[in-house]
Amino acid sequence: MRLNYPSNVKIILVPCTGKVDVIHMLTAIQKGADGVYCVGCLEGACHYNQGNLRCRERVNHVRSLLQEVGLEPERVRMYNLSSGEGPTFAAYAKEMTENIQKLGPNPLKKKAGVA
């Protein structure tokens, strides 16, 4: 199945969303990403039991950190789907992109010294 999803999305594969740490998402934003989202398996269907639930909590944590720092928490999100739901994946990518477009570019990019 070939699916179109916005080309601005850069995919990083991890074995389980439980592997995604707060610092990974935060660093992405620090380095100038306009948004970060994690796509995990459906809740209750994690191969490692809790991985996607942990990830959701971390996403929430990152959102609160961004707020503290003065950035929009909406730049970071969590989505869930089951494997094989290609169209849903594409839909989420589109939704996230639109959402970020509304927010505009990461304000850090305008500041000096952002890689």
Partner: peptide, 8 residues
């Protein structure tokens, strides 16, 4: 956080 906050 500090890096971002101070830049902002």
């Amino acid at each position: 956080e500090l890096d971002m906050g101070r830049k902002l």
